[in-house]
Amino acid sequence: MDEIFGIPAPLLFGQLLLGLINGAFYAMLSLGLAVIFGLLNIVNLAHGALFMMGAFVAWMLLNYAGLGYWWAMLLSPVIVGLFGMALEKLFISRLYKLDHLYGLLLTFGLALVIEGVFRNYYGSSGLPYRIPDQLQGAWDLGFMFMPVYRGWVVIAALIFCLTTWLVIEKTRLGAYLRAATENAPLVQAFGVNVPRMVTLTYGGGVALAALAGVLAAPIYSVNPQMGTNLIIVVFAVVVIGGMGSILGAVLTGFTLGVVEGLTKVFWPEASATVIFVIMAIVLLARPAGLFGRA
């Protein structure tokens, strides 16, 4: 078999595919963040904690209510989304007139509290969650052994990202959302209930995080710090893509997943750092991000 830069080609293809899978998680999380930042101007540091909650709710549904994976895909985003809306109504909505920093601090605090509560009751080692029976097994692609479930993750993430993008760019609701981002008082003057729309948007962004959490539950161990590990990377993804740019968030998510995957082959030690190096370079060259408007 041929080699590319001293790495056997099959290994390289495998890594590209794995990078794409991790990119799917980055894309889904950064999408929610971008939507929330775009409309609410809130840097939602609680996103990782809500992603974790999504996975935990899936586990709870299975163990306390006997509802399996597919029910969790439906119910977990709804439950966590409602929780998010309560957070928005109770806390976050009080900060819209203030500097970004307040929202950042508040959501950071909320993240610590949520994680602390789960850690207190469920410990840090995590809980097992089985891959659903329909998605068990693996395909032999020749160059690698591809678990069916991972394939499903990529497809599901693409569908959810595309749907969100379509809703925001192509529907009347999306038009209201975008208009409210530009000039909220004017949209309100036309009779649109902007505060409610904002609450629903936050709930929607949070539901996306919870959905990503359900997708992640069978792959990673369901533990309270699973969001913390991802959220910083996801923020870098959003910054690179351009704050508030939805398409940017999705494309950057997948691309950086692949870049990270390749780094794991060529220089594994740097794989946790590479995204931040890219972020620094992008910020120097294009402060508004690759897809952002200055």
Partner: peptide
């Protein structure tokens, strides 16, 4: 051998694949 960043690595599939190769 492959050295994985600590802490902060959650996906080990790339490394497992290298091990398998």
């Amino acid at each position: 051998q492959v050295r994985t960043p600590f802490p902060g690595t959650t996906d080990f599939s790339s490394f497992l694949l290298q091990a398998q190769a």
